[in-house]
């Protein structure tokens, strides 16, 4: 490993961190505005002039200045470590997300596999936070989070298997590249309706994966106060928050990359070919990727302010009795389809 490699790696991580910070700031603002408008309210209106756009920035600055409180009875090393694990797992997953033809941290040949594996590390961080807080609500939240994330990994993995089987590669760029040339070539529309079902199952299960309503049991404001991060304050809390919103974009990004054409435009004339201008090609690709991801982010937020929270048993019912059989049947049918059409 040369110095140049190290420099590139650092620049890559810094870029990812900058991107997820911006995404989190925008997403928190839109979350507030969307929730407000769905409730016929206005949301933040003052900070920054235009519809309170700077409210989240002000909140971040405030959080940075806050005292870092560590409870006396907490398991201090674990307590301090947990937010870093959650955030670094998130950043590490972003490394394989294809923002453009060349805008990707590293195009691993097992990219999607790596992503699923590394984002599971977050469970450890959340469980750690819940355990180390030495608070029963935090522990409940951590346990629920662990159980639901581990359960929902299975339908997620099975639904991700559909595009992988169709394309025949685990590399993110290969998966995106197979969807070029207009929206009818996108992953969702291949092998109708099975890839579509896989996409829906993935999207719903990913809500559970990132602890969003209607699967926000680990936080459960009304019962667990704030779940696993109830004891956190200041910057450590901000890290959890950042990780949560970055994860929302991450799962949306995976859905975009595998099912919604990645950085390809809905129509090929909206793209700039790599031969004419590489930089512009990547920027336009980035634009399409980010805007598709944002649309999915809005849908996540829209769902959050529509649906009430599920009970734990209902959550498990949805996972094990509905998503799982559907995914299995899906995998079977699609693999049969592929085998039959290829031979």
């Amino acid at each position: 490993m040369t110095w140049l490699d190290l420099l590139i790696a650092v620049a890559c991580v810094a870029g990812v961190l900058g991107f997820i910070s911006v995404v989190a700031l925008v997403a928190i603002w839109t979350e507030r505005k969307i929730s407000a408008h769905i409730h016929d309210r206005l949301g933040p209106m003052e900070t920054g002039g235009f519809h309170g756009w700077a409210q989240t920035i002000a909140d971040m600055v405030k959080l940075l200045q806050k005292e870092d409180i560590i409870p006396d009875a907490a398991d201090k090393p674990l307590f301090k470590l947990a937010p870093y694990i959650v955030l670094s797992a998130t950043i590490a997953s972003f490394v394989v997300l294809p923002f453009g033809a060349h805008l990707i941290g590293t195009d691993l040949n097992i990219g999607i596999y790596y992503l699923v594996a590394i984002s599971s590390l977050e469970v450890a961080g959340i469980l750690m936070a819940g355990w180390a807080s030495n608070n029963k609500w935090a522990l409940f939240g951590g346990m629920r989070s662990a159980s639901q994330m581990i359960s929902f990994e299975i339908p997620i993995g099975l639904s991700l298997l559909i595009p992988i089987m169709i394309v025949g590669s685990l590399s993110m760029q290969d998966l995106v590249g197979a969807q070029a040339g207009g929206f009818w070539n996108w992953g969702v529309f291949s092998h109708l309706p099975f890839a579509m079902i896989a996409f829906i199952v993935y999207f719903w299960a990913s809500l559970a994966e990132v602890n969003r309503t209607p699967f926000d049991l680990p936080e459960g404001e009304s019962e667990l106060v704030a779940g696993f991060h109830v004891e956190y304050s200041g910057m450590r809390f901000a890290m959890f928050f950042l990780a949560e919103f970055a994860n929302m974009f991450l799962v949306a990004g995976v859905a975009v990359a595998l099912f919604l054409g990645g950085w390809h435009a809905p129509f090929s004339f909206l793209e700039i070919s790599a031969e004419s201008n590489v930089i512009l090609h990547n920027l336009v690709g980035f634009f399409w990727f980010a805007s598709k991801g944002m649309v999915l982010l809005f849908i996540q937020q829209w769902l959050r302010w529509t649906l009430p929270r599920l009970r734990v048993d209902q959550l498990m019912h949805v996972c094990w009795k509905i998503f799982l059989p559907f995914s299995f049947v899906n995998v079977l049918i699609v693999s049969l389809w592929i085998v039959l059409t290829q031979s």
């Binding site: 969307i34 408008h37 016929d40 209106m45 529509t306």
Partner: peptide
């Protein structure tokens, strides 16, 4: 779920005067 999303969507983009 779809019915609920339809209702919240209507409120989201109704642009009627907010109660705030």
């Amino acid at each position: 779920v779809l019915i609920g999303m339809h209702i919240t969507f209507k409120h989201w983009f109704k642009f009627k005067k907010a109660v705030t």
